[in-house]
């Protein structure tokens, strides 16, 4: 199986960290072949940030995304720049608080930012809520793997909060209830 995951949002949301956590989950805990890349540059500081993760059972040669089949979108600009091009067979998890448009592919609406802010008390974990949702919606990595990779990647003392964020993300996916 091969998946190409494109993650986009605005700078400061932790999009790149999400892509690293996802890559680490697949590489270290699911023992897959993985490449994680990201867009660097001035646009990564405030503009639309973008991370890409390729997960494959076979060795990966070309490191850049060719045909993403999974999208995680956390800003309107990110949607317009990347998400709007999603192919019909793709699946998208979008932050319904921040993304106004809807794609032509299957999608899940996740109010990650408001859940993070109101229920978890830290807007900063919205990206982790999204990761939890993404993994539940797509199964792209195992749930054990994403938990362990998250714990390994977040600052000390925030483990509990991040686990809660992952869990809330999972709960926000109602199978069969997607748009």
């Amino acid at each position: 199986m091969r998946h190409e995951i494109l993650l986009s949002g605005f700078g400061g949301q932790g999009i790149i960290l999400s892509s690293v956590i996802l890559g680490r989950a697949a590489a270290i805990y699911d023992l897959k072949h993985v490449i994680q890349t990201q867009v660097y540059g001035p646009e990564a500081r405030g503009g639309a940030s973008m991370g890409g993760v390729i997960i494959d059972d076979e060795p990966i040669h070309y490191p850049k995304l060719r045909r993403p089949d999974i999208y995680l979108i956390m800003s309107q600009e990110g949607f317009e720049r990347y998400g709007a091009k999603a192919e019909a067979g793709a699946v998208m998890v979008l932050d319904s608080d921040l993304v106004q448009s809807r794609p032509g592919c299957r999608y899940f609406e996740v109010p990650a930012t408001s859940v993070a802010k109101k229920e978890l008390g830290k807007v900063i974990v919205a990206n982790i809520v999204m990761l939890g949702a993404l993994v539940r919606a797509t199964g792209v990595v195992s749930e054990g793997a994403i938990e362990r990779a998250t714990l390994e990647s977040v600052p000390k003392g925030t483990e509990e909060l991040n686990l809660k964020a992952l869990k809330r993300g999972r709960e926000l996916i109602i199978m069969g209830g997607e748009g």
């Binding site: 690293v20 890559g23 270290i28 490449i35 994680q36 890349t37 660097y40 490191p63």
Partner: peptide, 10 residues
């Protein structure tokens, strides 16, 4: 180069 330097792999 920037690609090899910045990409992550297992």
């Amino acid at each position: 180069d920037e690609i090899v330097g910045h990409m992550r792999e297992p």
